[in-house]
Write a protein that binds this DNA or RNA. Structure first.
Lengths: 127, 127
DNA sequence: CTGATAGTTAGTCGCATGCCTAACCAAAGC
DNA sequence: GCTTTGGTTAGGCATGCGACTAACTATCAG
């Protein structure tokens, strides 16, 4: 099967990884990891015009890495870890493939499918 | 601290995430997860001119996601999971931050540093 | 040596990205 | 109601990316 027109999940990964490939956007994610924040609050640490930062936020939102909502004149941004998980999952999958441990991966995939909310310490085996 | 001129690790993450943001490159990584392959072997599944694919390989190599070596007229490519781990580590860090579980993260980071080869089932908590 | 095979280099092209300024709403604050 | 304050829209500009063709190099097979 040569390169067909891209499954939906693949496009999602495209967007997520692309979003994470920018240091500003990763910094924003780091900040949001500590809790929600307004746009101007997020903008403060950066020597960057507002519209530029806004664009970064758009990229993050379109990739579903964050969710935003406007209340009054303030837009509040919040991290949405699902997309992050998708990326992490893909990475873990490659690692597992590489280590020839498809058995465990399948079990993991199954557990993912069940949408179970149990969350455990994740651990990427190092090198 | 505002956006200083980019630490080396950050630039590495830029490159890795950017490399992974392309479906062709991810497909290549998936293929290499199953074992090393030559350039033309990698090219086969894609309806793409060689130079284009070559460029993808260059991106992957510069991001250190793969390593390549030429023997005779054949260049063989191999996955190099360290960069993948770096990306996975960053993601896990954000998750952990979000979940307010820095304690465990520190333990994980320390274990990473020790370069230990013990590998365990990784598990991203879903949702 | 000749030709096929495997990869490389150079140069082009169109579109996306990331940044900016300037102008513009729209809720608060007073 | 007038002015901040917080965000948004529009438009412009340089650079980078992903793809292509064409032409070239280098090894291996016979």
């Amino acid at each position: 099967m040569p390169n067909q027109s891209q499954s939906a999940t693949n496009q999602a990964l495209d967007r997520v990884f692309h979003a994470l490939s920018d240091p500003t956007r990763r910094a924003i994610m780091s900040r949001l990891g500590q809790g929600p924040a307004s746009v101007s609050e997020l903008a403060k640490p950066f020597a960057m015009a507002m519209p530029s930062l806004l664009q970064h936020l758009q990229v993050l939102e379109e990739s579903r890495l964050i969710r935003t909502a406007k209340v009054g004149r303030v837009r509040t941004c919040e991290m949405q870890p699902v997309a992050l998980d998708a990326a992490g999952h893909w990475i873990a999958e490659q690692r597992a493939l590489w280590e020839g441990r498809l058995d465990r991966m399948e079990a993991y995939a199954k557990s993912l499918h069940k949408q179970e909310k149990k969350r455990d310490t994740k651990r990427f085996g190092k090198r």
